[in-house]
Design a protein around this nucleic acid. Sequence first.
DNA 1: TCGAATCGATTACAGGCGTAATCGAAAGGA
DNA 2: TCCTTTCGATTACGCCTGTAATCGATTCGA
Lengths: 123, 123
Amino acid sequence: MDTRVSDAELEVMEVLWASPHPLTATDVAERIPSERGWSLATVKTMLSRLSAKGAIRFSEEGRRYLYTAAIARDSYVGRESQRFVDQLFGGRLSPLVARLAEADALDKDDIAAIERILKELKS
Amino acid sequence: MDTRVSDAELEVMEVLWASPHPLTATDVAERIPSERGWSLATVKTMLSRLSAKGAIRFSEEGRRYLYTAAIARDSYVGRESQRFVDQLFGGRLSPLVARLAEADALDKDDIAAIERILKELKS
DNA sequence: TCGAATCGATTACAGGCGTAATCGAAAGGA
DNA sequence: TCCTTTCGATTACGCCTGTAATCGATTCGA
């Protein structure tokens, strides 16, 4: 349903989403960007909490668990995006675009990509 | 700096941002959407916390305080938007647009508005 | 065989958040 | 002059988060 994950938990989700196959806790820890500076224990806590909230699943492989994401990145990100524009922009995307445009946060490529998407939409 | 406010606190900020003049705690409480169902005490807690984090200011009017936002909505929203696209879309807006487009979250008007903004940008 | 390493589970602990109730001081009404 | 109301400040309290340490069980290496 509307499972939400914290910022730190999201880091773990990204690792699982990026992997084509299930990962052990150690595997996950190894793939967490080192800037995070997490201990293995911390990663294990995240995995437990994510299991508890149903965002990931695991199967047992001997004494170890193999974790996989239980929700798709696309749908998670879609829900969060909707939520975001609802909360700050009354559900409309254009004010967000305007805000980022003013802040020079859009480069040529990004702009071109957006235009392509919109053109496609209208056809 | 990078003051962040919680969802509930944001509700209070919106009230202050929407008012052309300072408001007392009671004024704020009256303007909070009633679906929230907050008691006056809750609103006062929010005001204290927001003051503590520097998001709002107050001046004393007799025994009461008159509150005003200390940060502009525009800049707050700008920072949060940047943060959001950085976190979920690697800093690019187009994947967000794509995601919302797929979810049919864009209506004709919104699309037209976005196109206008982009056209303006390129000129 | 036996100590070391490793596993997931449990516990820890401070700070933030949502949602108030209570408190002492002041002001206002009768 | 009191009692009531109202103000901001302080306290409450349970859940979530970030960041682990510890524990009992198992496995692995020597």
